[in-house]
Amino acid sequence: MSQHAGTERLDSGLAHAGVRSYVSGFAISILLTIAAYLMVTDQVLPTGPLIAVILVVALAQFGTQLYCFLHLGTESRPRWKLLMFVAMVIIVLILVLGSLWIMRNLDSRMTIPQQEQYMNSQQGI
């Protein structure tokens, strides 16, 4: 019994979880994975919107597993794990989106025409 009490504090999310959480998380993840896969292999949308959709699907699966497998957001207050997760997301968005913006800007401005021509002719499809 004391061991059970210990694991309650150990990972408060795990303490109140049930098999249902994992089964539903698993099932939803499978569906989302296959959905995204089929959308791409069957090319159901033009590339631009397709990419946007599969990104949304990925985020949905991400959120599903965060909640169902990692029980994020179920801890008792203060919600430090959630806070650290949000902080990480903010930093990651800054770093990744920032880098993409900066590098796209730099690469387009700092590539001389001959180089660009060469790179385009070499572009594998």
């Binding site: 292999t41 990925a58 991400f62 990692l70």
Partner: peptide, 16 residues
């Protein structure tokens, strides 16, 4: 979780 993004960004987007 990381693999979800690799699957999507590397493989799915690479194929699309």
């Amino acid at each position: 979780l990381v693999w979800i993004f690799i699957f999507t960004i590397v493989y799915l987007m690479g194929t699309a």
